[in-house]
């Protein structure tokens, strides 16, 4: 693949439309790390087609949904029915993962940090995972049933858990997308590693802190429903998956 002034606009368009194969996509993404002209062309292309993404219709959440979620969070251990939907066992795991009441693990983790760099890296991930989320986005389907929960921990870490019983064929993958800003356009947050859960760090983050020191001042620009897509690069199937209802917790 050749990247020069003549080919970059065309390649950027084909990338944004999902017409490159996986090898071409990877080559382009590597090149974009060091090629500002390519990054600019990709951003311009994403901006050009963004109105198509915005034609999706948002889904209203059932009345009282957020009150029930908050009640469930404050209860701690209790499982809370949401919108009439039955939560999968993973819902209970979500609450437990955010429970910081267990004493001892912090001390153990700090000791591990001193022990080795590898453990320090692992601990950083662990702290992010077990902290209270600053923002939770509950993704619903057209019937208002809970499909997944995105948790943003306000420290450059977030995770998504699928709660719905989604069967992913062996040759398919589930990919999560976000829309950090209209300038940036839709950005893939990556594939769900085990088909149900994914944690990530990075600059294309769902939650943008308005003030870094204020945990409650955080907003979720837009998160799109994770989609099952072929295990090849055809990522622009962005319609029919609006669904997000961002919620400030604190």
């Amino acid at each position: 693949m050749r990247f020069d002034n003549a080919t970059i606009p065309e390649i950027a368009d084909e990338y944004v439309l999902g017409l490159l194969d996986r090898a071409e996509q990877q080559a382009l993404e590597q090149e974009s790390e060091r090629n500002p002209a390519l990054r600019t062309a990709i951003a311009a292309s994403q901006e050009r087609y963004l109105p198509l993404d915005l034609t999706v219709e948002l889904v209203d959440v059932p009345v009282g949904l957020w009150a029930r979620i908050e009640a469930g969070l404050s209860d701690g251990d209790a499982a809370v029915p949401l919108g009439g939907a039955t939560l999968a066992p993973e819902a209970a795991l979500t609450a437990a993962a955010n429970d910081n009441r267990r004493a001892g693990w912090r001390a153990a983790a700090l000791s591990s940090m001193a022990a080795s760099l590898v453990l320090a890296v692992a601990l950083t991930w662990s702290l992010g995972r077990h902290a209270d989320p600053v923002v939770i986005a509950v993704l619903l389907n057209e019937a208002g049933e809970v499909q997944a929960v995105v948790e943003d921990f306000g420290n450059d870490t977030a995770q998504i858990r699928l709660l719905a019983d989604i069967r992913v064929p062996a040759d398919k993958a589930v990919e999560v997308w976000t829309l950090p800003s209209q300038e940036t356009g839709p950005v893939s947050l990556g594939l769900l590693e085990d088909g149900r859960h994914h944690a990530w760090k990075g600059r294309h983050f769902p939650c943008r802190r308005l003030r870094s020191s204020t945990r409650s001042r955080c907003r979720m620009p837009e998160v799109r429903r994770p989609v099952v897509r072929p295990d090849r690069f055809s990522p622009r199937d962005l319609r029919n998956r609006p669904i997000v209802q961002p919620r400030r917790l604190a």
């Binding site: 439309l17 999902g18 017409l19 109105p51 897509r229 055809s234 990522p235 622009r236 199937d237």
Partner: peptide, 27 residues
């Protein structure tokens, strides 16, 4: 919107090809 106008100005086959790629995710 400009995109609506410009897509409308395209030949139908071009418009359909672009929409099938971008919206449908087809190869």
């Amino acid at each position: 919107s400009r995109l609506h106008e410009r897509l409308g100005a395209l030949d139908e086959r071009k418009r359909r090809g672009i929409l099938l790629a971008y919206v449908g995710g087809y190869t």
